[in-house]
Nucleic acid binder design. Structure first.
Lengths: 228, 228
DNA sequence: CCAGCGCCTTGACTTAAGTCAAAAAAGCGT
DNA sequence: ACGCTTTTTTGACTTAAGTCAAGGCGCTGG
């Protein structure tokens, strides 16, 4: 297991903080170990702090009345989540659940707000994190409202290719069902579109590995294209 | 014209600041007067500050490759916009244009960041503003991915009813075409759904005034319903 | 008062994507 | 390797919502 101080100093939120500041941060953090599938909080729950993923994977999601689930984010090591109600209102706006056995760090609200008030650079980091998140949401909304599913999938593949630093092949780190939910669709539709993309030699699916046969074609599709 | 200091102290972003702090804020703000239809910035433009609407109305929107426009927000007096790139990256993630003759206050990036570093309460206010915005985006994404258009429209009407503090009638302050874009659809579809809602005695449209004949029915529809 | 111009509505048609049901494939623990 | 569960794929069908095109309504200005 990685040292907690190491995890903290690696998180973007605490980037560039001094040794002393990092120690302060460590002082107020509380460890939380969760099995796979554990619900961390539900939409509407009262919030008295936020979390950082030290190890494992967490999904943030909304559920419709009929029980349909839409995944908003999947977070891994170093990512914070649940910070919104720390600064605005008291309730969580979505649900959080572990996808794997996970190690989380919990930061109690009041202690963290105190810390921020005393450390301008921590405040600026937090502003940066929230702003990045707003930027991502803007893209997500654009995708949902302006593109159809093939375009969203292509965007995601291009994003993965950048994320994983490869132009030849990418690996899904979530199930296709979860990917469907993340793209705002259902497994059947995703499956059909993957088949179509195969037929048009854009990709070649090998389980969770997807060979990118025509990256620029995918970029095109992500930007504005239609699949025939 | 309202005094600028008054406008500033009324904005949520500067809530609870001292006289002195408000003066500091005023010091760095720059007035900008725009006619109706003026583009303030475009997606991808370099950003060196953000704005607050002192008077008028501004739309924030994305445009798809085919030229289809999706409105993300419409902001009025007291609302800040364009803050994201101040804290994350350099570029604006969307476009901004005035809907009316407007008076804006511009806050240059570096001066504002300096100010925040010295005023923890301003930093916390800003964190609050960004967090509220994330909360709104979460709702928007939920609406787009989990509800069909009638549900989104019902949500919007219920929201307007709360906003305007009336349960009997609400007034649209934007055109129906713009509303369609805000709901992620097109004018034709919106029009048809309004007609259906009329037929089912949920509402009664009188131009831009909409009589709410069955608010609880609308709430129901917003929550989980389908229109027959 | 009427012409002209946006804005909104209506109709006929097309299409993307969801539903339901079942089969096939892939994982997983023993 | 086996039987079980879960995930993924495929097929037939339905439906919400988009496109295209035409018409109506309600302004404002001459």
């Amino acid at each position: 297991m990685k040292k907690i101080l190491q995890i903290i100093s690696d998180a973007p939120l605490f980037n560039g903080l001094s040794e002393e500041q990092l120690n302060d941060v460590r002082q107020i953090s509380v460890d939380k170990f969760c099995d796979k599938g554990k619900t961390i909080f539900l939409e509407g729950d009262d919030c008295n702090g936020f979390y950082i993923v030290a190890d494992g994977k967490v999904k943030i999601y909304k559920v419709s009345f009929e029980g349909k689930e839409h995944i908003l984010h999947i977070y891994g090591p170093g990512n914070p989540f649940g910070e919104v109600p720390v600064f605005a209102g008291r309730k969580f706006p979505a649900n959080a659940q572990t996808l794997l056995k996970s190690h989380l760090l919990f930061f109690p609200r009041t202690a963290f707000v105190d810390l921020i008030s005393k450390n301008p650079s921590l405040a600026l980091n937090m502003l940066g994190v929230l702003s990045m998140r707003l930027r991502q949401f803007t893209v997500q909304i654009e995708n949902l409202s302006l593109k159809e599913v093939p375009g969203r999938l292509a965007s995601y593949l291009v994003y993965l290719s950048q994320e994983q630093g490869r132009t030849d092949v990418v690996t899904l780190n979530i199930s296709k069902g979860q990917l469907a939910s993340l793209l705002g669709t259902i497994p059947e539709t995703l499956s059909r579109i993957l088949t179509k993309m195969n037929q048009q030699h854009l990709i070649d699916t090998r389980g969770r590995n997807i060979i990118l046969k025509d990256l620029s074609g995918l970029e095109d599709l992500a930007e504005h294209g239609k699949l025939q």
